[in-house]
Amino acid sequence: MNTTGKFQFLNQVSKVVQQSKDGFHTLYKLDCLDGQGDMTVYQVFPGIELFLANFDSTSCTFQHKPYGNTMQINYCQEGRVGWQLESGACMYLGEGDLSIHMMDNCVSSTMSFPVKLYRGIGVVVDLDKVADYPPEILCNTAININEFKRKFCEDDHYLVMPARDEIEHIFSKLYSLPNCVQRPYFKLKVQELLLFLWMIDVNKEKQREQYLSPQVEIIKRVHKQLISNLRERPTIEELSKEYLINTATLKSTFKGVYGQPIATYMKEYRIHQAANLLRRGNDMIADIAKQVGYENQGKFATAFKKIMKVSPTEYRLQHQIESYDVINCL
């Protein structure tokens, strides 16, 4: 299979689903550990590719050549995504966040999706090629494209920018464009992105806390334990002693990986598991409450309504009516 640009995946692409005759875009179907993923790659300018990524999985492994002067910019539109970089650092993006790293820092890396969902947009910039063939708008500025590496990624550093209106403005419409305007719109937005990044003062940016791979692996084990038996409610101190990690690191790294404090995350997880049980089974509500860790049905009902906006009884009734309507339509 022939691929173009920087997306020469090794053993990860199960098949090319679609390719335009003019070579503007290629849709790849990707092999994922426990779900599915696809990526549409667009050739926007010489040396600049844009991709739209969709994953419903917990992880996907990539390998590519060590492109030494190629920068990758990622924007998380929905869900959550993380990378383990060659430097040993791990970075995570939540909805609206943007990251910048060099592609020789992710030669063989696993993208993880902590909430089993990711919709994102990426821009890959071959700095050498763009310097030789700059987009027209950059020719009218004092921008030196090769300064981007020094500015954002010197010495294997990377940058994660928290969500802000200016970033959303650049990326928000890119997933829903009609095919007939994709090419000019992508060209416009890629140039807007480069202009925006050029104006950023990195020294004034609040740096996200960095996480090391061993810490992240411990947190993933903690998470697996927490969701494996919802009847148990171990404390932060108990988890800290069991996994030999101090409480502050445990709390901050869990939030960095999963996007919420442990208590908030687990409360929402319990309620969404309860919602699944209410939709799919006929167990008594009191029994469902116990299955997800609530001995008191009243506390369960209060927590459920706060998150789902209806009571457990109303929720079950709504979905019974929806199922009845679907069956009658068949």
Rank of each mutant, 00 (worst) to 15 (best):
A248F: 10
I236R: 02
E237V: 12
K224Q: 15
E268Y: 07
G47N: 10
I327E: 15
E78M: 13
Q273E: 10
I73T: 11
K151A: 08
R183W: 11
K6Q: 03
V310M: 08
I167L: 03
C180S: 09
Y133H: 12
Y185A: 11
F51Y: 11
G88E: 04
A142H: 13
S172Q: 13
Q72N: 10
S59E: 04
T61R: 04
G293Y: 04
N179F: 06
A275M: 02
S59R: 07
F254G: 07
Q215K: 14
F186R: 08
L226K: 03
T302R: 14
G47D: 04
I262T: 01
K220H: 12
C153Q: 01
L159Y: 06
F24V: 03
E322F: 06
G79F: 04
M111F: 05
R164C: 15
T3V: 15
I137A: 10
V123K: 00
Q318E: 12
S176W: 11
E209Y: 15
R164M: 11
V222W: 07
I327D: 09
R208S: 15
R279A: 07
P135T: 14
L195G: 08
P46R: 12
Y175D: 14
E205R: 01
E209H: 15
C76L: 14
S87V: 07
K241Y: 09
I143N: 04
T4F: 07
E322Q: 15
N140K: 15
K251G: 13
M266D: 04
V310S: 10
E314L: 06
L50V: 13
V310Y: 05
I288P: 03
Q8N: 11
D104C: 08
I170P: 04
I262W: 05
V292F: 03
D31A: 09
P135Y: 05
S112R: 15
V41Y: 10
I121V: 07
V222R: 13
L10P: 02
T141R: 10
L330A: 09
E268M: 08
N140G: 06
L138I: 06
L278H: 07
D31P: 01
A301S: 13
A142E: 15
V13K: 00
E209P: 05
K220L: 08
D38V: 11
D56R: 09
F196G: 02
Y243P: 03
S20E: 14
H25Q: 12
